[in-house]
Simulated assay, not measured.
Amino acid sequence: MTTILIVDDDQNVRKFVRIYLTEQGYQVLEASDGMDALRVLEQERCDIAVVDVMMPYMDGFALTKEIRRRYEIPVILLTAKNQIEDKEQGYEAGTDDYVVKPFEPKELYFRIQALLRRYEKSSGEPVVKIGGTVINKNSYEVQTAERTFLLPLKEFELLFWLMSHPSQVFTRDQLIEQIWGMDYEGDDRTVDVHIKRLRERFAPLTNDFHIKTVRGVGYALEANA
C-alpha cells in the first residue's frame, strides 16, 4: 500500500487530508513539524511527503532539503502564501510540486497521483533499447546508427516515455501531464510539435521504430520488425 506522510503543525489540516486520502486507499502517516517528520521517515517507509511551509523548529523548506539529502521520494509543499518568491524558494529546496492553501483535497490527490507515476517512471530501467536504438536516462544520450545525440530535455523525456511503452497509445493530455506536468498552461499542440521534431530527427537515420498518429486519440511508438 502506498504510504503518504503529511507534515503540518495544524492538526485540523492533517485530519482533513488524512480522511480524504485514506478514503482513496492510501496509508497516511502524520507529523506535526519537520523534526517529527524526520523521526517518522527514519522508522517508516514513505512513498511521498506532503509538507507545510510554515512550521516551528524546522520549516518546510529546510525539511524538503533534508528529505532530498536522505531519501528518494517526491515532496509537495503546502503554503498559505501565493507569492512567486516563496515558490522559487520551494523549488530551490527541491520540492516537486506546490499547492496553495486553501485547496480542494481532490486537487492534492491528483497531484500526488501524478508525482507517484512520474517517480515510478524515473526509478524504472534507465536504459531502453529498440533494435539498434538505445536511450539512456542516466546520461540523457540517444545512440542510433553509430551516432550519439543529446536531445533537448522535453524531446528526450517524450522519446524515453514512448520507447518505454511501445505500442501503447497516449492521448495528448496524457503526454502533457506526464512530460510537462499538471501545471502546464500551454497549447496541446506542443505535443504535435515535439513529435514532429522527433520524426524529423530519427526517420532519416533508423528504421528501428516509428511514431504513429492514432487519429482522434493521440500517438504510439511502434517497433519495426
Rank of each mutant, 00 (worst) to 15 (best):
L150Y: 05
H165A: 08
R197G: 04
K121P: 01
G124W: 08
V193K: 10
T190C: 02
I112H: 00
R172H: 06
V128L: 11
E125T: 11
D187P: 01
P105H: 03
D86R: 02
I211C: 11
P105R: 02
Y119C: 08
E88Q: 09
H165S: 07
L159G: 00
V128W: 14
L198F: 13
V169D: 11
L205C: 13
N82P: 07
L159N: 00
L159F: 00
N207Y: 06
Q174N: 01
E92H: 05
Q83W: 05
T148R: 06
V100C: 10
D86W: 08
R172C: 07
P166I: 04
T190W: 01
V100E: 12
H194D: 04
D188F: 08
R189S: 14
K87V: 03
P166A: 02
A93W: 03
L78I: 07
E104D: 14
D86K: 03
K212D: 13
Q168K: 10
F110H: 12
S167A: 15
R117D: 09
E200N: 12
G186N: 11
K106E: 13
E155K: 07
K121H: 13
R117S: 07
F209L: 09
E85R: 06
D173E: 14
R117H: 10
E141A: 03
W180T: 00
D188V: 08
L158S: 06
I84M: 10
V191G: 01
M182T: 15
E157T: 01
E85M: 11
W180A: 09
T171D: 05
E120F: 06
N82T: 07
Q83F: 07
R199S: 03
F202V: 03
L151H: 08
V99P: 01
D86A: 10
K101S: 02
T133L: 11
H165M: 05
T148S: 11
K121F: 15
P102S: 07
A145G: 09
P126A: 08
R201S: 11
F202P: 00
E85W: 04
K154G: 01
P204M: 14
